[in-house]
């Protein structure tokens, strides 16, 4: 019996120690992270998501979008995230501090979406275009046509109706889930400045080989510091 006791204490203790150090330790450090008050703009960042966007985050999780999309920009010089225009600075813990369902993601079969909302505005991608993309799929991305429904036009055609060839008298409209999802996608922005994550200085022309990390790393790699 005695050797068994030591054996189980050993196994239990080994796991418990890692849990206490990594999980509890980092949680204590991160728990203290609040929003950052920016006196210049007179606002706290990051701002909480709107109710509809938060709902959209749930839809995003339910559909498993994270199997193909990440939402985390790595520092300049580590991979090519910023060269690809996925963000102007590294993502840090505070960016997610208010999120109950953060979607850091598992794989990059599609582009990183941490700043998709910002990118969409610049590229002129509006709700209608996003609905269409979700309905049809694109490249390696599957279609999510079940987020839309065919409905008879009663009175006026819906303003959100997709420009699809359908029988006269009918329209294809986004469901409330599609609406929430698109609101969420358009709300994905890490465009505010945080003291722990200054924007990386990216050379104007993208160099043929990624610049050595050391040139920009010291500031950009600083962890989310908390007292």
């Amino acid at each position: 019996m005695k050797p068994s006791l030591y054996f189980f204490l050993g196994v239990f203790g080994a796991i418990a120690l890692s849990w206490a150090a990594i999980v509890v330790g980092s949680h204590r450090q991160l728990r203290a992270l609040g929003t950052h008050f920016d006196p210049l703009d007179n606002m706290s960042v990051p701002a909480a998501m709107s109710g509809q966007a938060a709902q959209g985050q749930r839809v995003y999780q339910e559909l498993g979008c994270g199997a193909c999309h990440t939402q985390q920009v790595r520092r300049y010089g580590y991979g090519w995230d910023q060269n690809r225009g996925w963000g102007e600075r590294q993502s840090v813990a505070r960016d997610y501090a208010l999120q109950t369902h953060p979607q850091l993601g598992q794989a990059r079969i599609g582009p990183d979406l941490a700043n998709f909302g910002e990118r969409a505005v610049k590229a002129g991608v509006d709700r209608a275009k996003l609905y269409r993309m979700l309905h049809d799929g694109q490249g390696g991305m599957p279609a999510f046509s079940f987020l839309f429904e065919r409905r008879a036009i009663v009175g006026q055609k819906s303003s959100a109706a997709l420009a699809l060839p359908v029988a006269p008298g009918w329209q294809v409209v986004p469901t409330s889930r599609a609406e929430a999802l698109v609101s969420y996608l358009l709300a994905l922005k890490q465009d505010y400045a945080l003291p722990e994550a200054p924007a990386a200085v990216i050379p104007a022309a993208v160099p043929a080989t990624p610049a050595p990390a050391a040139s920009t790393a010291p500031a950009a790699t600083a962890p989310a510091k908390t007292p």
Binding site: W19, I22, V23, H27, L30, R31, Y96, A97
Partner: peptide, 14 residues
Amino acid sequence: YPVTGVSQAIVGAW
């Protein structure tokens, strides 16, 4: 008792 933010990702990875 869900933790929020990236603490979740740390729990998940661990």
